[in-house]
C-alpha cells in the first residue's frame, strides 16, 4: 500500500461515511413532528388572542398582545372548577387502582399455577375484543340498575372494567418474560407471592408500568362517550363534557375556546413529562446471564 492511499484510508476512518438511511429517517421524523406540533402551536397562539385578532391575523402569527384573561374567562364560563375537580377525582382513583388490580391479576395469572388460570386469562383477553360502543346501552342499563348514574363509582367501575383487560394482557406478557429463577430465588429466600410481586416484579416492571400509567391517564382524562352517557347532571361532568358544551355555547369565541383546550390538555402533558423518565430500558439487566 502506498503512503498516499494509506493516508486516504486513515482520513476515511476518522470520518464515518454518510448514512443516507439515517438522514432519511431524520427528515421524516422532522416532518412528522411538524405535522403534530402545528395544531398545538395554532391552539396556544389562538388561546392568547382576542376574537378580533383571531379574525384578522394569520393562524400561525404569534399573538401581538397576549390576552391571558382568556384563560380566566374560559375557566369561569366553562365551569372548570366543577369539571376539573370531577376529572381529577375520577382519574386519580381510576388510573392507580386499575393499574394495581391489573398488575396483581397479571402476576397471579403468569406466576401462580391455578386450576382455571388459562381460562381466566382467555376470558380477560376476550374483554379487550369487545368495542365499548356496543356496550354503551347495556352499561347504562346496568349502572342505572345499581342506581349509580351521576356518581363517581358509576363511571369509575365501567372505566376499570374496560381498562383492566388490556393492561392485564400487556403485563401478563411482560411478567411471563421475567426469568422464573428470579421468583424461585425469592421463594427460597422466604418471600410470599405478594412480597415477590411487590419487591421483585414491580421494580423490574417500572418502564411498562409508567407507559401504561401515561396511556391510561390520557385515555381516562379524555374519555368522552361513556362519561356522556353515565354523567347527566352538569355538576358531575368531566372536562371533555364541559369542553364540548363550551364549544357549542361559545363557538364564536375562539380565544377562550382554545384557552379551555390548553387547560384540558395540560395535565396530561405534565403526567407524561413526569413519568417518561421511568422509560429507561434494561431494568432487568444483571439479574440473570442470558
Amino acid at each position: 500500500m502506498t503512503s498516499a492511499n494509506l493516508a486516504a484510508v486513515q482520513a476515511d476512518a476518522g470520518r464515518p461515511p454518510r448514512d443516507w438511511v439515517l438522514i432519511g429517517l431524520w427528515l421524516s421524523l422532522i416532518v412528522v413532528a411538524a405535522i403534530w406540533i402545528a395544531p398545538f402551536v395554532f391552539i396556544v397562539f389562538t388561546s392568547l388572542k382576542s376574537t378580533g385578532q383571531v379574525m384578522t391575523t394569520s393562524a400561525f402569527a404569534p399573538p401581538a398582545d397576549p390576552q391571558f384573561s382568556n384563560y380566566a374567562s374560559a375557566w369561569a364560563r366553562g365551569r372548570f372548577d366543577t369539571t376539573f375537580v370531577n376529572s381529577v377525582v375520577i382519574t386519580a382513583i381510576k388510573v392507580p387502582l386499575g393499574l394495581m388490580i391489573s398488575a396483581m391479576a397479571a402476576y397471579a395469572l403468569a406466576k401462580i399455577p391455578m386450576r382455571f388460570g388459562r381460562l381466566t386469562l382467555v376470558l380477560i383477553l376476550f374483554g379487550t375484543m369487545i368495542p365499548f360502543q356496543v356496550m354503551l346501552a347495556p352499561i347504562f342499563t346496568l349502572v342505572n340498575g345499581f342506581g349509580l348514574i351521576d356518581t363517581y363509582p358509576g363511571v369509575i367501575l365501567p372505566y376499570l372494567a374496560f381498562g383492566i383487560p388490556y393492561q392485564v394482557f400487556i403485563l401478563h406478557g411482560f411478567f411471563r418474560a421475567i426469568p422464573h429463577e428470579l421468583s424461585e430465588a425469592a421463594r427460597i429466600d422466604g418471600a410470599s407471592h405478594f412480597t415477590t410481586f411487590r419487591r421483585v416484579f414491580l421494580p423490574v416492571s417500572l418502564p411498562v408500568l409508567a407507559a401504561l400509567f401515561i396511556l391510561d391517564f390520557v385515555a381516562t382524562w379524555n374519555e368522552f362517550a361513556m362519561a356522556l352517557v353515565l354523567l347527566q347532571d352538569r355538576e358531575m361532568w368531566t372536562l371533555p363534557l364541559g369542553l364540548s358544551a363550551f364549544q357549542g355555547q361559545f363557538s364564536r369565541d375562539y380565544g377562550q375556546l382554545n384557552a379551555a383546550i390548553v387547560m384540558t390538555v395540560l395535565p396530561a402533558t405534565l403526567v407524561y413529562l413526569i413519568f417518561q423518565r421511568y422509560f429507561v430500558s434494561g431494568l432487568t439487566s444483571g439479574a440473570v446471564k442470558g
Binding site: 426469568p179 428470579l182 430465588a185 427460597i188 422466604g190 421494580p203 439487566s285 439479574a287 440473570v288
Partner: peptide, 19 residues
C-alpha cells in the same frame, strides 16, 4: 415450603434481584 427446609440455592444464571 423451600424457606422452611433450611436450604439455599445458587442458580446457573445467578438470579440476582436487578434493582
Amino acid at each position: 415450603e423451600p424457606k422452611d427446609r433450611d436450604i439455599a440455592m445458587v442458580f446457573q444464571n445467578y438470579a440476582l434481584y436487578p434493582q
